[in-house]
Amino acid sequence: MTITPVALALISTGAGLLGSVIGTVATLMSASLTQRATRDRESEFKVWERRAEAIEEAHRKMIALGNTRDLAWARRELPSGMSPQDLDPGHQDEQFRLVVTKLTLYTTPELVQAYRDSNQAFLRSLLGIQRIQLALTERGPESDRPRRQRNIDAAVAIATEAIEKSKAADERLEAALREAAALAATRRRR
């Protein structure tokens, strides 16, 4: 069987069309895969940014509370403007809830728990300082001076222990923050 010039022209045209279709499909698939990879990278980067922001915010809050605790301890009095509600461990202000929400969404449960523990230890340290403040302002007859001094000494011992526990909780939180930041950076590099 011989191929006529018309058949040869049709075969070569068909092969050219088939090549064009295959090239177009390959180009479209390549563009689609590139867009998907870019979108995935951008999404991963946004999550990483939010994780880093949550970690930074928790660290800033930890430092601010630590400074407040240390200043209150040095003065042996609570910071001005604190209400009894602020010292209630069950009370959670808006900023605390916001940080916990961000940590919950973008980090590990261990970090969230370390943040909560640090905040609760902070509140207990302020309660200990408040106890000292109350013992120091206690008035009474001169004959009650030994009892008053015992109350002050007991309050100082309790506050000292609460402050040490608060500092230890801050150290655990800082270690958890560092670990979470290192994990976030490692995942991002992959």
Rank of each mutant, 00 (worst) to 15 (best):
M29T: 13
W48I: 10
A157V: 06
I132A: 00
S118P: 02
P84G: 07
P84E: 07
G90C: 06
P79Y: 00
A159Q: 05
I152C: 13
Q113L: 12
E171K: 10
A135E: 01
D170S: 12
S20N: 02
R145Q: 15
S20P: 03
S80M: 09
R75S: 10
R116V: 11
A9M: 09
S30I: 13
Y115A: 03
S166C: 06
T137L: 12
S32V: 14
A180V: 05
T101N: 08
T34C: 04
W73C: 13
A182D: 15
M82K: 07
S143P: 04
G90E: 02
L17H: 02
R178F: 10
M1I: 11
L87A: 00
A168Y: 09
T186I: 13
A37P: 06
A37Y: 09
Y106R: 11
M82H: 08
T137M: 10
I3N: 01
A157I: 06
E49Q: 14
E77R: 04
E57P: 04
E174C: 11
T4N: 04
E142H: 12
S43M: 11
I129G: 00
I3S: 02
S118I: 03
A135R: 01
N67H: 11
F96G: 01
Q85H: 05
R75M: 15
T34L: 13
E56H: 13
M82Y: 14
E56Q: 13
P109Y: 10
L123P: 03
G128L: 01
A64Y: 10
D153R: 10
A72L: 01
L10M: 03
R145V: 15
E94P: 03
R188N: 13
R131I: 01
L134T: 08
D144H: 09
R124S: 06
P109R: 08
P5H: 04
R36D: 05
A37S: 15
G128F: 00
I22H: 11
L177K: 05
V25C: 08
F96S: 05
V6D: 09
A64V: 11
G140Q: 12
S83P: 01
R188W: 15
Q133V: 00
T186N: 07
